[in-house]
Computed example of a mutant assay.
Amino acid sequence: MIDLDETDRALLRALALDSTQSAGALGRRLGLSQPATWRRLRRLREDGAIARERLDLDLSALGFGVTVFLGISLAAKGRVSLADFERAVSAIPEVQTVQHVLGLYDYRLRVVARDLSDFERVLRRRIMTLPGVGAVDANVLLSEERLPGPL
């Protein structure tokens, strides 16, 4: 576990709201100099508190109007390796996340598509043909609220 002080936590909260802020702007906001802020940011990255920085795209503005969560149960766990399934499913561009889970399903996927017809095409031609796929359960996303910031 990474040892964080209150300044580190405030820095992470500020970055979670807007990760494009410069070290100087963050420092002014937190009462730190730019070099001190930069050193803290570098340490947080090196220690793994900041794993990566990502761009949050508006999928609907880009033409992806449907998001579906799929629960995938593998048919024959002994015959198909988990690595083979993960490698194959990760190659499908519409699959945004692949989560290996414990419970009713073996995997949970987040899939985006332009519309339901497009999703059906992805499901039939790409996902159902993956090695070892058995049962598939789908939940269409109706709305989503995101809670910004680190824990």
Rank of each mutant, 00 (worst) to 15 (best):
A83N: 13
R126K: 15
S73V: 00
A83K: 15
K77Q: 12
R114A: 04
F85T: 02
E53S: 13
L57C: 09
L62K: 14
R125G: 11
A75F: 14
S81V: 08
D47S: 09
R114K: 11
P93D: 03
R79H: 10
T129W: 02
L82R: 15
A88F: 09
D106P: 03
L55E: 07
A113K: 03
L62P: 14
E94D: 12
A83D: 14
M128Y: 05
D56F: 12
R126D: 15
Y107K: 03
I92Q: 04
R108G: 00
A61Q: 14
R42S: 15
V112W: 02
R126M: 11
A113W: 05
G65M: 05
L82N: 07
V89M: 06
R79K: 15
V80P: 08
V89S: 04
Y107A: 00
D106F: 02
L55V: 12
D106Y: 01
V112S: 11
S81C: 05
E46D: 14
V122D: 12
S117G: 15
L57H: 15
V140E: 09
T67D: 06
D137N: 11
T97D: 05
S117R: 14
S117Y: 07
R52S: 15
K77T: 09
V136G: 00
R121A: 10
E53N: 07
L59G: 08
A76R: 14
A76F: 12
V101E: 02
R45I: 12
S73R: 08
V122F: 11
P131L: 07
S117F: 13
V68D: 02
G63Y: 04
A91D: 14
L62E: 15
A51Q: 12
E120P: 03
A49H: 04
D56P: 04
K77I: 04
S73D: 06
E86T: 06
L123H: 10
R114C: 01
L130D: 08
I50T: 12
L74H: 00
L109A: 10
S117V: 04
R87Y: 08
V122E: 13
T129V: 10
V89R: 01
R45M: 12
D84G: 02
E46L: 10
V111I: 09
L104Q: 11
A75V: 11
E94R: 09
R114Y: 00
R110Q: 11
E86Y: 11
D56W: 10
G132Q: 05
L130I: 07
I72A: 03
R126I: 03
V98G: 11
G48L: 07
V89L: 05
V101G: 02
Y107C: 05
T129F: 01
P93Y: 01
E94H: 13
V111T: 06
V80A: 08
D115F: 04
G63V: 04
G65I: 00
Q99G: 00
A91K: 07
F69W: 05
E46M: 03
D115I: 06
S81K: 13
A138I: 00
S90K: 03
V101K: 02
L123R: 15
R45Y: 10
L44Y: 07
A75C: 08
A83V: 13
I50D: 08
G134P: 01
V133W: 02
A49D: 04
